[in-house]
Design a protein around this nucleic acid. Sequence first.
DNA 1: CTTGACTTTTGCCATTTGTCTAATTACAAT
DNA 2: ATTGTAATTAGACAAATGGCAAAAGTCAAG
Lengths: 130, 130
Amino acid sequence: MEEKRIDLGKILKQQRMMVPLTLKELAVASSVSSSHLGRIERGERFPSARILRRIARPLGFDEDELFTLAGFLTPTGEGVAGESSPDYRGRQLDPYVARILAEEPVEVQRAVISILTILKSVATGLTTVK
Amino acid sequence: MEEKRIDLGKILKQQRMMVPLTLKELAVASSVSSSHLGRIERGERFPSARILRRIARPLGFDEDELFTLAGFLTPTGEGVAGESSPDYRGRQLDPYVARILAEEPVEVQRAVISILTILKSVATGLTTVK
DNA sequence: CTTGACTTTTGCCATTTGTCTAATTACAAT
DNA sequence: ATTGTAATTAGACAAATGGCAAAAGTCAAG
């Protein structure tokens, strides 16, 4: 059961866009040069533990979590049966959308989601009636 | 609050002596060259996470333990992004909102923003008319 | 004292990491 | 479509990492 090489860069980029941050902003927050961050995201470099540690919190990661994702730590049995592994694959939030929404208070953000949900239910209602 | 230096080398050497192992033996057990191990022990080199991980078990360390000793992990260790990290970032997209939105196609994401913009203009129209 | 089997240290060098700066690209606004 | 600006990528280096092989040390017999 060989652990496949995960694309850490992709994960990091997804997370950065969801925060959202630009490379330069993350660079400032983490004290890591933006060019290096960019190379890491596109897989041209692999971050050292020191770098990984610096970017963990600005991205909202737990250090352990990120170290495990990077393959530095062996995925510890993950103690409690509780869930803790978000599905890091395939998601993508449009950067522009993320930026605009992030400027709104959280209540507004959530209200937007509520509206979206309503619209979706209406839409599916329409189509299912067919 | 610069990172303080710990003499990891001394700790490692002590541990190796107590096992006990020679550099060569540890080299075989860990797949790290004995010369490199020697330099690490006397502080001429600092081990990468990859190397540290390899020598942990043969020396009887837990990976986390050794990583913490090396300063790769913060002693407190636990500090999940969801709860205990106050505000490392000023503006932020609510994680739940981000997750939900990210599942929608980009067109939908942008449509949501459009709707939000319209609602906001209507709202400001109402309030300014006062 | 010398030999011989060890362990540890050193010299050298290929590879990788990370920064600074300069280019290039993307994209909102006109 | 054009343009101004922010964001990403690329070029060129300096520094650190880690391996291999040869050079010291170490020490118990002979």
